[in-house]
Computed example of a mutant assay.
Amino acid sequence: MISRGWLDTYGRLAPISLRTAPVISIQKLQLVKVGCHVRVYSHYQFKCSENFMKIHPDAVRGSVGVGGAEVTYYDTGRPGAGSPVVLVHGTGGSAMAHFRTVFPMLAARHRVIGLDLGRAETFEGLVSQVEEVIAVRTFAEPVALVGYSLGAAIATAVAARRAVTIDKLVLICGWAKTDSVQRARYGLWHRLYAEDHDALKIFSTLMSFGQTYLDARTPTDLRALIDARTFSPGIVEQMRINENVDVSGELEYVVSPTLIIGGASDQMVPIKHSRLLFGAIENSRFAEIPTGHAATTERPAQVFKLIDDFVRELPHTTPAGAVLDTAAF
Rank of each mutant, 00 (worst) to 15 (best):
H56I: 06
H56Q: 07
P57Q: 13
P57I: 02
P57W: 01
P57C: 01
P57R: 09
A59C: 09
V60A: 12
V60R: 15
V60E: 12
V60Q: 14
R61M: 14
R61L: 07
G62E: 13
G62I: 12
G62N: 11
G62C: 08
S63E: 15
S63R: 13
S63D: 12
S63T: 11
S63A: 14
V64N: 09
V64G: 02
V64C: 05
G65D: 14
G65W: 03
V66G: 03
V66P: 06
G67A: 04
G67I: 09
G67T: 05
G67K: 08
G68C: 10
A69N: 01
A69T: 08
A69Q: 05
E70G: 06
V71G: 00
T72M: 09
T72Y: 14
T72G: 00
Y73I: 05
Y73D: 00
Y73C: 01
Y73K: 06
Y74R: 10
Y74C: 06
Y74E: 12
Y74V: 03
D75C: 04
T76S: 13
G77H: 13
G77D: 07
R78F: 14
R78D: 07
R78Y: 15
R78I: 05
P79N: 03
P79H: 04
P79D: 03
G80A: 03
G80K: 08
A81H: 12
A81W: 03
G82V: 11
G82Q: 14
G82Y: 14
S83R: 15
P84I: 11
V85R: 10
V85G: 04
V86M: 05
V86D: 06
V86Y: 07
V86T: 06
V86E: 08
L87P: 12
L87F: 09
V88S: 12
V88Q: 09
V88L: 11
H89E: 00
H89K: 03
H89P: 02
H89D: 07
H89R: 07
H89L: 03
G90T: 09
T91P: 02
T91L: 13
T91C: 13
T91V: 15
G92N: 05
G92L: 07
G92H: 03
G93C: 04
G93M: 01
S94E: 01
S94Q: 07
A95D: 07
A95I: 13
M96K: 13
M96D: 08
M96E: 02
M96F: 15
